[in-house]
Amino acid sequence: MKWDTCDPSVQYLLHLGDDALVLGHRLSEWCGHGPILEEDIALSNLALDLVGLARQYYQLAAQRISGGCTEDHLAYWRSDREFLNHVLVEQPNGDFADTMARQFFFDAFHVLQLDALQHSSDAELAAIARKALKEATYHAQHSADWVVRLGDGTEESHRRMSAALARHLPFVEELFTAAAVDRVAFERGWGPDVASLRASWLELVGEVVAKAALSLPVVAPKLLRGKQGIHSESLGFLLAEMQSLPRAYPDATW
């Protein structure tokens, strides 16, 4: 089944849902392994919010695809070439600083994206965004809190946080580079012109980074095409694990 050939609004919903699912999945890998119990619980909350958000996008997409398509078809039966998430969110967890850098960069973008999406001309999408914006705002505070604490903590944490920012920054440009899916969404009034979010993102991130006694290095953006289904090698493994059970027992329902 090729889901990406349908209605362009479905493609856009898949793109949004895939970001949420893949990042939520990565965060859920921390469960039981966090640096302290309190943070373990906090990371699970982020994961719960994001996987929950993915479900909402997929449910809406499934309704529009019809023909008995469900959220689980969309999550479990598309290959990595059909996933339309940003390459940033599929990056492996690394150490806690890596996870927070990835989270912080995405959260800052997510808040701006949802803020625009709540005024979407697609009323159902706008409703999802309104609720998610509250959660994303909280996520952004949480990751910013950690960027500041790690950046301005010990020498070791400063070094690790610095390295993590440098490692993830080259993935950021993709967030603000419109792919076909973004262009259609913008033309139809469903979503923002992603390039227009860049300035606010820089401001938001710059403020926190300065507070953290860190700086954003100058990096060349990577050539990334996640929104066209071309991913880093790690997504294949993530999906292989995530999708293993339904694919091993295709006749079963759970």
Binding site: E29, I41, A47, R55, E71, E241, L245
Partner: peptide, 28 residues
């Protein structure tokens, strides 16, 4: 937690994650 990343449906994934998170809370 060994099965969170392999839960066979999104609903099952959320429930299992919430449950394991609860256990962390209970430990706390």
């Amino acid at each position: 937690a060994n099965w969170i990343t392999r839960a066979p449906s999104l609903r099952a994934k959320l429930i299992l994650l919430a449950k394991v998170q609860d256990e962390g809370g209970h430990g706390l």
